[in-house]
Nucleic acid binder design. Structure first.
Length: 122
DNA sequence: GCACTGACTCCCA
DNA sequence: ATGGGAGCCAGTG
């Protein structure tokens, strides 16, 4: 985040960007997962807002963020939908009837969290 | 400080 | 499966 735009961003937005940048190639995260991991609780909408405002030179893998239904949050006939779909396909993400199997594509970090929570039972 | 908005979610008919 | 409605939390004017 070296661009002037990024410097003006709020902590919440920067947190979102940090999380999104960390999504491994070929995997996806839901808005809710990103929000939670960014310390925003249920502010899933913040994630979309942050992605929209992210400067282009940041090379943010925004396409790896989809909604909780495993679908792209754009109208299926929009240019943005197609763009995101193409990008994900090129990364190896498989769509079945317009949806991604979230059980298969949840990120490694998400899996780590599950394992760790298992070791440190509260 | 208030009201409105949203690339969201959850729940229920 | 699917559409509608209320809830949520920050950002923005």
């Amino acid at each position: 985040m070296s661009s002037p735009e990024a410097a003006k961003a709020t902590p919440a937005q920067q947190a979102v960007w940090t999380v999104v940048v960390g999504i491994p190639l070929g995997q996806v995260m839901t808005y809710a997962q990103v929000a939670d991991r960014a310390g925003l609780g249920r502010a899933a909408r913040m994630v979309s807002s942050a992605l929209r405002k992210a400067p282009k030179d940041m090379h943010l893998p925004w396409q790896r963020v989809i909604n909780s239904q495993g679908k792209i949050s754009f109208p299926k006939d929009s240019a943005e939908y197609l763009r995101q779909y193409e990008l994900l396909c090129s990364e190896g993400v498989v769509f079945i009837k317009g949806r991604v199997n979230l059980d298969l594509y949840k990120t490694d970090t998400a899996i780590d969290e599950q394992l760790w929570s298992g070791f440190f039972v509260e």
